[in-house]
Simulated assay, not measured.
Amino acid sequence: MTPVQLTLAPERTADGTALLTVTGEIDMSNSGRLADALDRLPGHVVLDLTGVDYLDSAGLNVLFARAERIEVIADTLLRPLLTVSGLADLVPVRPAPGR
């Protein structure tokens, strides 16, 4: 299986919080890269998914496994999926600024 386009950009916010900005599609072919990127960031991580066009069950599994230490920023495309899956009951899910 050929991995689909996925870009992972780790950084720190002004207050030192870990931020991982994700763009592209998250599926079975590349969910391991997302897991590795999250695991390399210590402590609480804000995960910006506003640039994600597709998220399948493999990607959701990565998020569920790390629910105790993540917070998610998602646009109107992903928020319903995060709610229906139950992830929004476990982690803070907030809209992107200005949306």
Rank of each mutant, 00 (worst) to 15 (best):
F64K: 09
A74W: 08
D56E: 10
A67G: 03
V91G: 05
A88L: 12
P80W: 08
I73R: 13
I70M: 13
V45A: 09
R40K: 14
V45W: 02
L47Q: 06
L78E: 00
R69Q: 07
L63H: 02
R69H: 12
L41F: 08
D39P: 03
E68K: 11
G51M: 06
D75I: 07
G43E: 15
F64H: 05
V46L: 15
S85Y: 03
D39T: 13
V84S: 05
L78H: 07
L49R: 02
H44G: 10
S85E: 00
D56H: 09
P80S: 06
D75C: 13
V72R: 01
L87N: 05
L60C: 13
A74D: 06
I73M: 11
E71P: 04
L81A: 05
H44F: 14
T83C: 03
A67P: 02
R69E: 08
P80R: 09
L41E: 04
E71G: 11
T50S: 15
F64D: 00
D53A: 14
T83S: 05
V45N: 03
I70L: 15
R79T: 08
L63F: 05
V84C: 03
R79E: 07
D75M: 05
L82K: 06
L90E: 03
G51Y: 02
R40Y: 01
D48L: 09
V52K: 00
Y54Q: 02
E68W: 03
R40H: 11
T76I: 10
G51C: 07
G86P: 09
Y54V: 05
T50A: 14
D89V: 12
H44Y: 12
E68M: 08
D89N: 13
V46A: 14
R40N: 09
I73N: 01
D39Q: 14
Y54P: 04
A67D: 06
D56Q: 08
L82P: 04
L90K: 12
D75G: 15
R40P: 00
Y54R: 09
V91L: 12
Y54E: 03
D56G: 07
V52A: 02
V62C: 05
V46F: 04
H44T: 14
T83M: 06
G59N: 04
I73C: 03
D53K: 08
L41N: 01
V46P: 02
T83G: 04
D48G: 13
L82G: 01
S57E: 01
R79L: 08
L41M: 15
I70V: 13
E68I: 04
V46R: 15
V62R: 08
N61M: 14
G43C: 15
T76L: 11
R40G: 13
S57Q: 07
S85R: 06
G59A: 09
T50F: 04
R40E: 14
D75N: 14
R79Q: 15
V62A: 03
L81N: 02
L49P: 08
A65T: 15
V72M: 10
D39C: 12
L55T: 02
G86Y: 07
I73F: 01
L87C: 11
G51V: 10
R69I: 05
G43Q: 10
E71V: 07
E71N: 11
A88R: 11
L82Q: 02
V45P: 01
I73K: 00
S85K: 05
